[in-house]
Design a protein around this nucleic acid. Sequence first.
DNA 1: TTGTATGCAAACATTTTGCAAAGAG
DNA 2: CTCTTTGCAAAATGTTTGCATACAA
Lengths: 142, 142
Amino acid sequence: MDDLAERLRGSGYRLTPQRQLILRAVEELGHATPDEVLAAVRSSASAVNASTVYRTLEVLEELGLVRHTHLSDRAPTYHSTRGPEHFHLVCRNCHRVRSVDPDVASALLEALRREHDFEVDLGHLAIFGRCTDCPSPSGDTA
Amino acid sequence: MDDLAERLRGSGYRLTPQRQLILRAVEELGHATPDEVLAAVRSSASAVNASTVYRTLEVLEELGLVRHTHLSDRAPTYHSTRGPEHFHLVCRNCHRVRSVDPDVASALLEALRREHDFEVDLGHLAIFGRCTDCPSPSGDTA
DNA sequence: TTGTATGCAAACATTTTGCAAAGAG
DNA sequence: CTCTTTGCAAAATGTTTGCATACAA
């Protein structure tokens, strides 16, 4: 769908092949780092520059077409906003990442709004911890 | 208090002046990046190396004396575990950071435990969003 | 004395920047 | 045509590593 073209023009941006490719890559990859997006775009066809990926992800996020979150201490990951909104659970032990329905957190959001005048950006949220059934308390990545 | 000495030895580590200085700096600074810790330690006295700061913060965190969280897209911040446990609210607009009592999130933690077999690491949690009364919806740092 | 810890310098990973050339509208 | 976007190369930022030396126990 050419949501992309319209959204871009609506904000004074231009439609370029790079932007199309990068958005498509994010949509296909699920949760991908800029590097992974770069690799995907490159294999998929032409050569695109890393800085273009960074700049484009920034634009796409501004337009609300993608979002980023931090699922590790390393590079951020980007995902499309086309699917349902969600937040993330990340297990420090097995590194499994789960997407959770916002409803689970609605009470917290409400409390923070009321008691702390704070509006949570749920889509950016990544909660670290560990699966109850995950073994060794190994000092692992965060 | 020489909790530090005991904890270190209890895990086969040694007590060094650098480790004392770094722990003290974290305690005094509140929420500080490795770089800020480095600067504090350096001014406070002798010269310490950056890599020592990184290695030491890792050890201190393993021992449970400090914790780190991500209050920006940049460097992580470390804080002492001597104060009460808390999680963080970060406003994308005014960059204010608030420490919140864990109780506010207890229902969520319980739900995640029950419904997702997931044990949240609350001390690492930083929730982004914006103060309700913060003005402009400027596309700001994350 | 023995092995851990440090300093140093270099490597690494990720992101940002300036600027000239390409290309969208 | 004009102004945005790209590629490129270099710099900036934050962190990690190998190795010889220093020092805690």
